[in-house]
Simulated assay, not measured.
Amino acid sequence: MKQIFWSVLVLGLLVSCKKDNTETSSELKEAYDRGNAQMYVETSVYPIIEDINQVFKTYYNDANIKLVMLPQNQLLNAVYKDSNRLAVVPKTFTAKELEQFKGRVVPKITPIAKDAVLFITQKNATDTLINYKDVIEVFKGSKKSDKIFVFHEANSSIVTKLMEDAGVKTISKNVYYAPTVEEIVAYINKNKNAIGVVGINWLVQPDDNIKEGIKQLRSMLVYNDSLKQYFAPSQSTIADNTYPLVRTINIVDVQGKTGLGTGFASFAASDKGQRIVLKSGLMPIKVPKREINIIK
């Protein structure tokens, strides 16, 4: 009888252990380092978030964050309407925008990097300088130009910013939209009067689809009104704000709990995450420390 008892007990323990060991990540209760979550990422900053997510996964094997690339307007509507609770956007929220969360949850907004809006053209183009005020006038339709401005998505953060600054709801005929950055690059290479408008993230971290195409392109220098001088986009001009079109990339978490959003944001803002940002060519919010050993 005792032998049967111990046999049943051991069998029960083995079954229990097997159940625990075969538990999938989808069955795990979500925490900062495990579970499943979906994060919407604005199109112009997708590459850097993809990089951070890949490294985050190597540290936390049970964490599965699905990234979805979306234009800013669509992304923000989802967050405001509570149909998605994690997002990454290259914008700073106004007090009026934050009011939309009132009575629901206080959003956790974590700045992780600074990037720049670039104007790109053919390498052999005669025009290498551009003034943002002139672009605004083209958007208004009050300035004639033979240039064609090409954007990634009609509802992207860059287009939204330009339309707000121009104070218009419709734009001139000098604007063209492409569904992918690959098509923007191809269009510029075929049209000498085309100027692409993209986030710097796509050029410093080009994917395989655009690596060859961007070799024939260059970024234009943008006029800084206060300094009366043109500046090229780079980590240093982003850092000291001499390049006039700098944006802050923020992780927005409205989960209302300590979930994967909290873990991802903490990781991205940590020394490890900021080193990924620095290596990518963007400007980290906190410059990682460098220790120098002096050997006597």
Rank of each mutant, 00 (worst) to 15 (best):
T128L: 13
T128D: 11
L129A: 07
I130A: 11
I130C: 10
K133H: 14
K133M: 14
V135N: 06
V135T: 07
V135W: 07
I136D: 03
E137N: 11
E137S: 11
V138S: 03
F139P: 05
F139E: 07
K140Y: 03
S142F: 08
S142C: 08
K143G: 00
D146K: 15
K147I: 11
K147C: 00
I148V: 13
H152I: 07
E153Y: 02
V159Q: 13
T160P: 13
K161N: 11
K161V: 11
L162A: 00
M163Q: 06
M163I: 07
E164R: 15
D165G: 03
A166P: 01
G167E: 13
V168G: 14
T170R: 03
S172K: 04
Y176F: 14
Y177M: 15
Y177Q: 12
A178M: 10
T180P: 05
T180A: 05
V181E: 04
V181T: 07
E183H: 10
I184Q: 14
I184W: 12
V185T: 13
V185Q: 09
Y187P: 02
I188C: 05
I188F: 07
I195L: 02
G196E: 05
G196W: 14
V198A: 11
G199H: 12
G199I: 12
I200P: 06
I200N: 04
N201H: 08
W202N: 09
W202E: 10
L203A: 01
L203V: 03
Q205V: 03
P206M: 06
P206Y: 00
N209S: 15
N209T: 15
I210M: 04
I210K: 07
I210H: 04
K211A: 08
E212W: 07
G213T: 11
Q216M: 09
L217I: 03
R218V: 06
S219R: 14
V222C: 04
V222Y: 04
